[in-house]
Write a protein that binds this DNA or RNA. Sequence first.
DNA 1: CCGGACCATTGAATCGATCCAGGCGGGCCC
DNA 2: GGGCCCGCCTGGATCGATTCAATGGTCCGG
Lengths: 340, 340
Amino acid sequence: MVSIKDVARRAGVSIGTVSNVVNRPSLVSESTRERVRAAIRELGYVRSETARQLRAGQSRVIALLVLDMTNPFFVDVAHGAEREAREQGLGVMFCNSDQDPEEEAAYLSLFAEQRVRGVLITPATEGDAALAVLSGFSRHGIPHVLVDRLVPADRACSVSVDDVTGGSLAAAHLFGLGHRRIGYVTGPLRMAQCADRLRGARAAAAEAGLDEDAVRVEERGALTVAEGRAAAHALLSGAAQAWPTAVFCANDLLALGVLQVMVERGVRVPDDMAIVGYDDIEFAAAAAVPLSSVRQPARLIGRTAARLLIEETDPATAPEHHHQRVVYEPELVVRRSTSG
Amino acid sequence: MVSIKDVARRAGVSIGTVSNVVNRPSLVSESTRERVRAAIRELGYVRSETARQLRAGQSRVIALLVLDMTNPFFVDVAHGAEREAREQGLGVMFCNSDQDPEEEAAYLSLFAEQRVRGVLITPATEGDAALAVLSGFSRHGIPHVLVDRLVPADRACSVSVDDVTGGSLAAAHLFGLGHRRIGYVTGPLRMAQCADRLRGARAAAAEAGLDEDAVRVEERGALTVAEGRAAAHALLSGAAQAWPTAVFCANDLLALGVLQVMVERGVRVPDDMAIVGYDDIEFAAAAAVPLSSVRQPARLIGRTAARLLIEETDPATAPEHHHQRVVYEPELVVRRSTSG
DNA sequence: CCGGACCATTGAATCGATCCAGGCGGGCCC
DNA sequence: GGGCCCGCCTGGATCGATTCAATGGTCCGG
């Protein structure tokens, strides 16, 4: 591998001069500069980020650790973060904890060893456990921004969407269409997102003058298409009169699974069963019965999270940085699955 | 940041001993070992991968650069690669060129600067341009494996799927169902994948005793749902008698777009229009008219590519490494979009 | 009592860059 | 002509680890 030394030798100058040509060319005379540049070109020299890092103490890579990289929502978040990072000349490591605290921990130590610039994370754990993860970060001095999760602003920045409002938008829409009994198909309720959307839905029920039974909860272990299918079978297990007339799903993967089963079983959507999803992933609109869904600005979330992290870790802007909570508003997108 | 020096001072030993405790504990006496470990624990020391790299000259991160990170097929590839890499204690940088040669080039120089262990890549360019990219790698001495793309085996390893066979499977299935005129909705034909699948489809037509006109090509600029929608409108633009009775799409995103338009326009699937996609992404099965599709072993592709790269770059196995081309066979998955 | 073997440990060189104090020559001012 | 300043460049310290030759100490056998 060609190093700065080889370039210096070839150009007949000192190492320091080569470094200046690369980093502060104005300090070097025209003729020397050209000679060094020629040497760089001829040798195909690429400066070692590793070595600069060692000296600078800061790397140019940020990590993004999500719960499920196969969920298009998180892919969009990643896409947004990547854009912002690229504009600042940084790279992004997009990683997947699969909701497994052990995987998460393994990645965190990888990140710590790599001395990444910082981490964008959707923690696999909740409450105290999540705080423990954060204090792990703080202990190692790794700056971090929480994505899709609130956290006390004295600890770190966070970027999220108001899930209570989102749940309320979805449920109010269904109640407004005349539905009186709806199902709520969700992942683990210990996940804040799932719990908050339920709170919103219940608030909407109260608002509509209905009691708590108006929202029947079907809790599953994960937010996937397969679990959505299982949930749909569960919802349709009793007598038809007892079925809800609409379903609100905690994300679009669940909703697609539910939709699929409804179609298979000849339950007409939206006539017999209206469906609302969450996230508004691309495949929601592309489903053969296009899904109504609560849109979250995924790309923007990623972009903002990356921006906050960069602000926090760029020596130029860090002094003015204060932790903040950014909360975006969700938006209901009505499609045929609720408005046949 | 706590360094090895701090640990050494605290434990009252030399730097070298701390290094030995971490890397070759058997060389260190029991008591010293414990004392050092205690110091590490108390100070929260994490060794700097950056510094080791500088000395070792090799990093513990591999890069994966794909054409479209929002395509679930590539996400699955990434997932597979990530698994394999994690098992070897390596990290993966999953990046997105968006089919843009400039983005690609920008990433390549980032990778070169980072001295990544190697790169898994689906090149944004074809033919000579792709070879130019590769020679860029070779020049910088960056090991690389081509994903979903063949390349002469003397230059690098490659992992791909037989696209001619895949195209032929799909088309033969349609011809076997009695279709005589099919549409082929594709991305740019300069992409080898798209062109090969067409060759396979034409071969199947010949096999079925049909002429070239049996496959009508609808070429679009990208492999996305939106382009699929546009293609469907184009296919349905003439007189109904002239419509093909089936469509084969170069990937599932296109197929989902086509399906969506068919449903909107009241064209029954599969009765009036059969549809076959490619990749068998999760959303193909989850579509309300589940899509027949040609399955590629995406996870396995990612895993294998990562394994080959690791073999090539691990000093222990590198000497026995020879570049190889791995070609998997695709598999047709029949669902309701062709077999109502 | 000495030489040699063996073991744990140390110290210094090294990786590739950055950065800064200082040297050197040339021009300018008094 | 001497002193100073300025522009350009050099040399060496530094970052945090690895690695290996050298050291010092213990123990054993002769």
